[in-house]
């Protein structure tokens, strides 16, 4: 029963991290540049949920779930803005320019949220109510189950778009060989902007999922981008499946390993695992489609 609860918590946390990491990879694959404002996209999603929650009538049983479309829309627009301001004008400059510009935009977003909402951590409405469900003798948190369920739906939707639509094929073509994709008539700028919108919307969804159970504050972006970065390094630079697996591994260390050791030790062991991956399998667990390590 205890193991079930630990596994569920790890899966729920890993699911939210996976959305962050996948959004990070979507932008990475379209631009080969790291979007360091991605963590602030997560934070913006959480605060969008906090702001939109006042529009909901009271006593709705699934308030967080109803907020999801609005949060996706707001953060997709934010992604477009990040792409337009921090990437497009300097895309032909060295990658370091994009790092700096996205870091700058991230700081502006964080400080803007700080000025608008205040510095205090905030909590968003629960996704499908609070409390637990008894299942096979274990108490399973409704919120955790909802996080896992919503993540599964969003990831399935993304897989369907990437595998079965023309847009998805264009995405993959740009990720594999942008110059060839351009030669074939694919509008790279359009794909790039869509990737910023989609990637940041995934980050925003993660923000909504995290904001009730784990709270959200304007300064959380730095920690979240670090987790996404580590997940992608572990899983394989540019691999969507790898990013999800890496995120799950981080959550396994944070919840599973920490239960049987201590939090500082679990964190140390996680970074040792990252080093081992870098030493013995530098392309990551799922290979490295990007082949351009930043």
């Amino acid at each position: 029963m205890l193991l079930t609860q630990i596994a569920l918590n790890a899966l729920a946390l890993g699911s939210a991290y996976a959305l962050v990491a996948i959004g990070f990879v979507l932008v990475l694959n379209a631009t080969t540049a790291v979007n360091f404002a991605h963590g602030e996209g997560v934070v913006a999603g959480g605060f969008a949920a906090v702001a939109l929650a006042i529009l909901l009538p009271p006593d709705i049983p699934i308030p967080g779930l109803l907020l999801l479309p609005g949060v996706l829309l707001v953060t997709a627009l934010l992604g477009l803005a990040i792409g337009a301001l921090a990437y497009l004008p300097i895309r032909k400059r060295p990658p370091i320019s994009v790092f700096v510009s996205t870091i700058a935009v991230g700081i502006i977003i964080a400080n803007g949220l700080n000025a608008t909402f205040g510095a205090a951590p905030r909590t968003a409405p629960p996704l499908i109510g609070v409390g637990t469900i008894e299942f096979l003798g274990a108490s399973l948190s409704r919120q955790s189950l909802a996080i896992i369920g919503i993540t599964a739906v969003l990831m399935s939707g993304l897989a369907m778009v990437l595998q079965r639509t023309q847009l998805g094929r264009q995405f993959r073509a740009c990720a594999q060989d942008p110059e060839m994709a351009r030669a074939l008539g694919i509008r790279l700028t359009r794909i790039t902007m869509i990737s910023f919108a989609l990637g940041t919307a995934f980050a925003g969804a993660a923000g909504l999922l995290l904001a009730h159970q784990f709270f959200i504050s304007p300064s959380d972006g730095g920690t979240l981008i670090l987790k996404a970065y580590i997940a992608v390094v572990i899983g394989g630079w540019g691999s969507l499946r790898g990013a999800a697996a890496g995120a799950m591994l981080i959550a396994f260390f944070e919840v599973g390993v920490a239960t049987f050791s201590s939090q500082p030790l679990a964190e140390g062991l996680l970074y040792i695992a990252v080093l081992l991956v870098l030493f013995f399998r530098p392309q990551g667990l799922f290979g490295e489609p990007q082949q351009v390590r930043v």
Binding site: I6, F214, E254, Q263
Partner: peptide, 17 residues
């Protein structure tokens, strides 16, 4: 007694202990 980083999200591990 146990100490933790400010970024820790899930408190279940430490509370179980």
């Amino acid at each position: 007694q146990e100490s933790m980083d400010v970024s820790v999200k899930d408190m279940l591990p430490v509370l179980l202990k």
